[in-house]
Write a protein that binds this DNA or RNA. Structure first.
Lengths: 336, 336
DNA sequence: TTGTAGGCGTTATCAG
DNA sequence: CTGATAACGCCTACAA
């Protein structure tokens, strides 16, 4: 049998109102009474029932987090940014994964409705704004890495374009004239932006570009491996390979090694994300650094703010900057 | 203004009871009435309020997941096993992270109380059974990778001992006589078991063992790097290094490369976990494979079962087997 | 400083 | 097949 506020009240010889006041600091209570109630409550192991409380409070103290079926470091780092931030403000997080399927995501959002005070939605493939339209107006939402037009929603994106642009510019500066690119799915927003950055940098520098230098992978090591194998067989062979994420870059390193090509002497390699493992690759991997944890943290802060303001605030679209991390896989510090 | 079951009932000209029956299949409703209610509900975008529902149902349809501050693939893979399994049975997951600090974990568990129908607790450092004692008896719990004695709780562990034992035996079989080990924190249960497996295999084979061959890391690449650097400087130098997880093994590969030692000719390297990236290392990393996703999935199944049975079932302690994956970092298939 | 009582949105138990 | 109505556990005016 679950013990309720009434049990505590009876035991303490007071009314439920007084016990409630103690647990919410919501009114004056005699110091002696408060202590008695508190000690009885812990003895009875009483904890207010969340459901009952939020029924009347209209607050669940829970943040919904909707993530795509991503794998690897990205997932854990985002959560690592979100959870502590939420906890500090007294919120729990309800996590849900959904494949990038419109129906599935809508189902997930519907299921969250009424169970959360706000939502962080990460859906790099689908037009998230359309999905979010299913939510009640009073449920604050922050869009993470989403395709979003207009200023109706708070949103946070990575500077994918800028990061890719900078990396290609760097490679050009090192004298590379044939730079290949391993892209992600074109439906994926991050992937598309990185590809756009690659193309723009080549175009602006009036550098050569060829269709066959662009290969498409799916962010996994194996797809990077395959793409790099194909690139290595081209002639003339590109002198640099830029992969749209580190996992694919690592797959590429593996493929080049098997093709008996030296990195960076024969082919330079660069990745995107700068996962912790990047620096331990052989050779250490040059990459575009993304502060994934900070992404989660900032999204959470924005969401908490929206909740405070009852969603009546000016929405803000923000972009998280990226930085180049130059290591030996593209020649490193000691120019070679 | 939030729309409730009453709004739907009024609009449809029926009582709330009927609407409720439609949404729960909990009684006979005229087909025509049902359709009318359904269409009105979707038009009004009505969704039952979770709080109110679970107040009377005594079910939250939510599973709590308490994880330590782990990072990398492990985290995402566990969730990847848990979430779909939970979703299929109509459950959400409430995720909480806690450092391996007794107070913090207790706080997290207290906060979950009343908000979840069951709990998956992963706490490899602390005696979880003691912590769980704080929960009400009627809240089913599954312990993941926990130090647990007795049979009072459902629990699931990785065969850390067996995996380490098998790997060391394999290395001995390849002729290695000086095998070093990079351990994890000794407080960590998984780490401790892997160390125990290493020692037992050496002892049972009457192979030499030295205190200086055992180094302690913390499961990060950098700690593996440091430990391997030290090991490389020993003389006589060990001919094999077995790291308690892949991240440390990868750090070790990096250190050996910088010390101009060839892998596997000068020093063989093996890891534990077999993360996806392992096969793309240079050289491809030999490892002990752990089906992390399956770990999450099985834990969830067990928990769902416990919830069905109202926790009145016979508790089961289970162990997930591991398998050796031999790649080139320890000589590979082509014996060398 | 404390108690009383109404209601939050649902489901469940009865009658009809 | 359908409709009242009493819970569920808690918060919060309002009254004392």
């Amino acid at each position: 049998m679950r013990i309720t506020i009434r049990d505590v009240a009876r035991e303490a010889g007071v009314s439920v109102a007084t016990v409630s006041r103690v647990f919410n600091d919501s009114g004056p209570v005699g110091e002696e009474t408060r202590q008695r109630i508190l000690s009885i409550a812990t003895r009875l192991r009483y904890t207010p029932d969340g459901a009952a409380r939020s029924l009347i409070t209209r607050r669940t103290n829970t943040l919904g987090v909707l993530l795509p079926d991503l794998y690897g470091e990205f997932f854990s780092e985002v959560i690592r940014g979100i959870d502590p931030t939420a906890q500090r403000s007294g919120y729990h997080i309800l996590v849900s994964r959904a494949h990038n399927d419109k129906r599935e995501i809508e189902a997930a959002m519907r299921a969250m409705r009424g169970r959360v005070d706000g939502l962080v939605v990460m859906s790099p493939d689908i037009d998230a704004a359309a999905l979010v339209a299913n939510l009640p107006d009073d449920c604050p939402v922050v869009l993470l890495n989403c395709v979003v037009e207009g200023t109706d929603y708070d949103s946070l994106n990575i500077d994918n374009f800028g990061g890719a642009y900078a990396m290609v510019t760097h490679l050009l500066g090192r004298g590379h004239e044939r730079i290949a690119f391993i892209a992600g799915h074109e439906r994926n927003h991050d992937a598309a932006e990185r590809l756009r950055g690659y193309r723009a940098a080549l175009r602006n520098a009036r550098a050569e570009s060829k269709k066959e230098w662009e290969r498409t992978g799916d962010f996994t090591e194996s797809s990077g491996y395959r793409a790099a194998s194909e690139i290595a067989a081209l002639s003339p062979r590109p002198t640099a390979i830029f992969a749209a994420n580190d996992s694919m870059a690592i797959g590429a390193l593996s493929a080049l090694r098997e093709a008996d090509l030296r990195v960076p002497q024969d082919v330079a390699v660069a990745g995107f994300d700068d996962i912790p493992m990047a620096r331990y690759m052989s050779p250490p991997l040059t990459s575009v650094h993304v502060a994934i944890g900070e992404l989660g943290e900032r999204a959470t802060r924005t969401l908490l703010h929206a909740i405070e303001e009852k969603n009546q605030h000016a929405k803000v679209q923000d972009t998280l900057p990226t930085t180049l991390v130059i290591r030996q896989s593209c020649g490193g510090d000691h120019r070679g």
